[in-house]
Design a protein around this nucleic acid. Structure first.
Lengths: 207, 207
DNA sequence: TAGATTGTTAATCGATTAACAATC
DNA sequence: TAGATTGTTAATCGATTAACAATC
């Protein structure tokens, strides 16, 4: 079974290939992709081989074909409906993040506890959190985004899972874990910053 | 030299410890931290040992002391000034992200190419990108955030680096790399989503 | 054919864990 | 002292890379 890093690399290859295609590349060698992504050329070939993407010895890989294959693997040919919980600054920004729309990701509703935030008639409605369960079940939503403060996050997680959500992107600054059959990716902005600060300081002290 | 994951775990320990302290914990065992963070107990002890955080055999670790030590290591006792480039939806949300303020991270100015976005008199001013270089040098800024579309990101990176920025958090959906002495953490929201979709699909197909 | 590139197997490297000695 | 926990060394596991055979 592939792990998170393997699949992250596939995304990276896809991004690079789309850019190379825009530059009229028809074929690429693993070396080109290595340069474009910072991944080693062997790693590229190994990944392609494990995901059944094959090239021509001597002729490299066909850009279009590899992109098609990656689209299939990453399920980029269909639209994925998401719900979001937390209509604060970050939450509202994500609702209108152009990268999502462009990339087949559609947030179809947002939920909050604060009545002041409700906007039932907006293009992407903001609804009371109590309606989450029904909404998710009725619309068969499998994916959710958490953009609440950390204190609320754990409860929101429980609610999402019991409603049947299977994949979650969590922006609350608390590391969430779920049951076996639920995928949670945590993005902790504070800890990313701490990380950067640490390594910049480290470099400064050791130069 | 520690790597990114090592330091990310330190952040995680710190978060957990702050929560445990709020629950009046005075001491913790590596087992407690393991439960609280999902990291194994050996790993906790190993990490603490490599970062010179010591406990009492039999008595565990003192919460306050470990937090202090982690604050020192992660440089949480001072305020870090950041600049940001890109005042779109996401950029504006980050400007007012409460988690940053709470955590000693201060974005002191934002830059954009679009004159319609300029707000030189706002609390956090939005300034023309041309002013970045001077501003960074005058204020000795070491850290930056990129929240532009992908096409602009590469140029923004060059500009930041030549101005002397050493640590960058990049939200543009393109994987950026910099010179040896510059730390870049890439957060690619699209690829995080692709990742979640992949694993949810995978679980569904293999159940 | 010669040369270049893929695809794969074996070797290496690094990170995690198991085992256990030290000690409070 | 007995028991529990830290701290560390050695073993294991997994991921990356080196080497090279296959082949276009």
């Amino acid at each position: 079974m592939p792990n998170k890093n393997d699949v992250i690399r596939l995304s990276r290859y896809r991004n690079a290939l789309i850019r190379l295609r825009a530059l009229n590349f028809v074929k690429v060698f693993s070396d080109n992709l290595a340069d474009a992504t910072g991944v080693s050329a062997v790693q590229v070939r190994k990944d392609f081989s494990t995901f059944d993407i094959s090239g021509n010895r001597r002729g490299g890989y066909e850009v279009d074909e590899v992109i098609k294959r990656l689209n299939k693997i990453l399920d980029k040919d269909s639209i994925h409906n998401f719900i979001e919980v937390g209509a604060g600054n970050l939450g509202r920004a994500l609702l209108h993040y152009p990268g999502f729309a462009k990339s087949g990701i559609k947030i179809i509703a947002c939920f909050d506890i604060d009545p002041a935030k409700y906007k039932p008639d907006a293009e992407i409605p903001v609804l009371p959190i109590e309606e989450l369960d029904d909404f998710v079940k009725k619309n068969e939503i499998r994916f959710g985004i958490i953009s609440t403060p950390d204190l609320a996050a754990q409860q929101v997680l429980v609610r999402m899972i019991s409603a049947g959500i299977k994949g979650i992107l969590n922006f609350a600054p608390i590391y969430l874990r779920g049951p076996q059959d639920c995928v949670i990716n945590n993005i902790n902005l504070e800890s990313e910053i701490e990380n950067i600060v640490y390594f910049v300081n480290f470099a400064e002290e050791n130069k």
